[in-house]
């Protein structure tokens, strides 16, 4: 078994075009299974799908296993979670997760939800930013609040789906700033961006990838970020914290697996993801995609996830977002 796994690791490393030295290093890692399937609810080409397919190129040599990405769509992730929850906890099947599966579990109460699976590691944070069209007078969080206070009840802020983390962020921002604005939900980043561009909305919240095309064309500007620190790509966009709004949005991308995973599998993931994140090629890719590496070990991620669940529950309760039953 050891021989086979290490051979595989060498082959995988060689395929990835890595130096012999790293292949030798890979020999001391033995992952219990040959092929790992990463399940995603995202469609081929969707955000999560693309990131998983990119990451496995670097995970394969780092962990000494082959990876496959499987798109299990439908039910807002319910089917993907059900598949992972019903898979053996031997390190062969995982779910490439975003916070959406927690929302789905809380709102739709499916047979298999967030409590049927176990967090493994956190990998990235997707920075949530506030953007406006190029001729908007708004330039900072301070401007936004001032403008909303000067024109109560007339400003319109755009956000994603009703149960999304982006919506939650804007509601929190609205409450903390103490302003009277209308928060308008959308089906996704695309239609929101159009409404920002055509002036129907005063601002929108989203991820940089969603509007990269318009951003590079200079049609829209990023004026603020909900991260701990300013983003290197947008040095002029201040964080909410800097401007006295004490909030950080943590939209994560991580790995979740079936319950009862053996410790060596979890360790292999912790080591593998850490190593992949250090790979210069991968760094180049995720910097370009505006993802912030935000690795968390199994233990940290479990605690983090529990707090996310609590916050989401409170948010749904406060804004009366419930399932019909």
């Amino acid at each position: 078994m050891f021989v086979r796994a290490s051979k595989l690791a060498i082959i995988a490393s060689a395929v990835a075009g890595l130096a012999v030295a790293s292949a030798a290093h890979a020999q001391d890692i033995k992952y219990p299974v040959d092929t790992v399937t990463l399940v995603t609810h995202s469609s081929p080409g969707g955000g999560t799908d693309v990131y998983l397919r990119e990451m496995v190129k670097f995970l394969a040599p780092a962990m000494g296993a082959e990876f496959a990405v499987e798109n299990v769509r439908g039910g807002s992730g319910a089917k993907a979670i059900a598949k992972v929850a019903n898979s053996p906890a031997d390190g062969s099947v995982f779910y490439g997760s975003t916070p959406s599966y927690i929302n789905m579990s809380l709102l739709s109460k499916p047979e298999f939800g967030h409590d049927s699976v176990e967090p493994v590691v956190r990998v990235f944070l997707d920075p949530q930013v506030i953007y406006v069209r190029k001729d908007s007078p708004l330039k900072s969080f301070t401007d936004i609040v001032a403008s909303a206070k000067a024109n109560p009840g007339t400003q319109k802020w755009g956000t994603g789906t009703p149960a999304s983390l982006e919506r939650q962020a804007l509601e929190e921002f609205k409450t903390k700033a103490g302003v009277d604005v209308t928060i308008v939900t959308h089906d996704g980043g695309g239609d929101m961006m159009i409404n920002v561009l055509n002036g129907s909305l005063d601002l929108g919240i989203g991820e940089i990838q969603e509007f990269r095309g318009q951003l590079d064309a200079g049609e829209i500007r990023v004026i603020g970020v909900f991260t701990d620190e300013r983003l290197p790509d947008f040095p002029d966009a201040k964080t909410a914290k800097e401007e006295g709004i004490d909030m950080v949005v943590k939209k994560f991308r991580g790995i979740v697996g079936p319950k009862g995973l053996p410790p060596e599998v979890i360790q292999a993931w912790e080591a593998g993801v850490t190593k992949a994140l250090l790979d210069p090629e991968f760094q180049k890719w995720y910097k370009n995609a505006s993802l912030i590496p935000a690795f968390m070990t199994h233990e940290e991620f479990t605690t983090f996830m529990a707090s996310v669940v609590r916050e989401q529950e409170a948010f749904f309760k406060e804004y009366n977002i419930t399932s019909a039953d």
């Binding site: 439908g74 039910g75 009703p162 009366n320 019909a324």
Partner: peptide, 20 residues
């Protein structure tokens, strides 16, 4: 499917397949 604004599930009869 899910209501586009409130997120309430409409006519899904508890089937996750119908959420979307």
């Amino acid at each position: 499917g899910s209501d586009p604004f409130s997120g309430v599930n409409r006519f899904t009869f508890g089937r996750p397949e119908l959420l979307d």
